[in-house]
């Protein structure tokens, strides 16, 4: 999965992967026979290597430090179980299909809108991840300085996004964008997993947001996560029919936290899990802040023809349970 610098390229890096049409968050999945399984690591710690090469302004050691911090940020999410180990520096480059998880720089001048990308090699007989690599495109300037460097992209921020993919998360749509000269630019976002990166010099994505935490918890959550948090589920409908591909956001007015989800079938069904118990405000919007292929497969029809709509009631989310049968009725534009 890719992290674009300005605009969404229409290429899919991971053609073998699909978005899993179940659960709360967009997760990566893979076909296993006739089934689709969530892509997740099954044994920990995950062992990874770093390519022993730096770029202008960032040594291999500084790069490794930043990547390790990003891994640790994901591992620190409460009530989840993930861990990783840096094994050592290697000469191998990412994407070499050598059976090792390699993270490093790669020159990809043809991908001039892709800052970084993550690939997987999966055993299609059982869905096991055999290898995952992450590359950072050397055609962009990089930095690991504590406060960020103007005009250079922050390694740790981009690593946090890519490691989100590495752990099985797909993209979040919690952000707003604008089109400038045919290129899409992010105005604001509230998820590290938003597909379009902040501008160079911005280090805001070094920390996870509520949406990211809900997503990783959905994959690797412990029993405590399931016991302490709750979910909402229901449908988005237009003239009585389901709306597919709607972006539904739960806003907790008490904490200000935002967690997003999608309607993932023709019935317009959605589930948003990992919510703090208590009142939530639900808002449904069309998926118009990024290229649809950043979120779904090409053959997934997304309905963009409806107005942004708030659900008519405050939804009380129970601890360890779900608020169900919510119907958000939207109207055509």
């Amino acid at each position: 999965m890719t992290r674009r610098s300005r605009a969404i390229a229409l290429t899919a890096v991971l053609t073998a992967l699909v978005v899993v049409p179940v659960g709360a968050y967009l997760k990566l999945g893979t076909r296993v026979g006739t089934r689709t399984e969530s892509l997740r690591w099954r044994t920990f710690p995950i062992r990874y290597f770093i390519t022993n090469a730096g770029v202008s302004g960032v040594t291999a050691q500084q790069f490794q430090d930043a990547v390790t911090r990003a891994f640790n940020t994901w591992h620190a999410v409460e009530n989840t179980q993930t861990s990783s180990t840096f094994v050592g520096f290697v000469q191998a480059r990412p994407f070499s299909e050598d059976g090792a998880n390699v993270i490093g720089y790669l020159s990809q001048p043809g991908q001039d809108r892709t800052l970084a990308a993550t690939t997987f090699t999966v055993d299609t007989t059982d869905g096991r991840i055999l290898e995952s690599d992450i590359y950072f495109n050397t055609i962009f300037p990089w930095s690991t300085s504590d406060g960020g460097t103007a005009d250079r992209y922050d390694v740790e921020s981009i690593a946090l996004h890519e490691i989100g993919h590495f752990l099985g998360l797909s993209h979040s749509a919690l952000g707003e964008t604008e089109l400038i000269g045919g290129s899409r630019r992010v105005i604001a976002a509230q998820s590290v997993m938003f597909p379009i990166a902040f501008r160079a010099g911005n280090i805001a994505d070094r920390s996870l947001k509520a949406d990211d935490i809900a997503g990783i918890s959905d994959i690797y959550g412990t029993s405590t996560f399931n016991r302490e948090l709750g979910s909402v589920s229901g449908r988005v409908t237009k003239s009585g029919r389901g709306v597919q591909g709607a972006h539904v956001v739960a806003f907790n007015p008490k904490t200000g936290k935002l967690v997003g989800g999608f309607t993932l079938n023709e019935a317009g069904d959605f589930v948003i899990a990992g919510l703090e118990p208590g009142p939530q405000i639900l808002r449904a919007e069309p998926l118009d802040d990024g290229d649809v292929t950043s979120f779904f497969d090409d053959d997934f029809d997304v309905d963009l023809d409806f107005r942004v709509t708030f659900y008519e009631r405050i939804v009380a989310v129970p601890r360890g349970g779900g608020a169900r049968d919510i119907e958000i009725k939207v109207t055509a534009k």
Partner: peptide, 26 residues
């Protein structure tokens, strides 16, 4: 009155105030 609570996003321009997706008063 619980007061205002805004749905805020992190702005691309890092130093500017939070981007407000919508406002609520409670």
């Amino acid at each position: 009155d619980f007061g205002a609570s805004n749905a805020e996003l992190t702005p691309n321009a890092g130093t500017s105030p939070p981007f407000v997706e919508f406002k609520t008063t409670n």
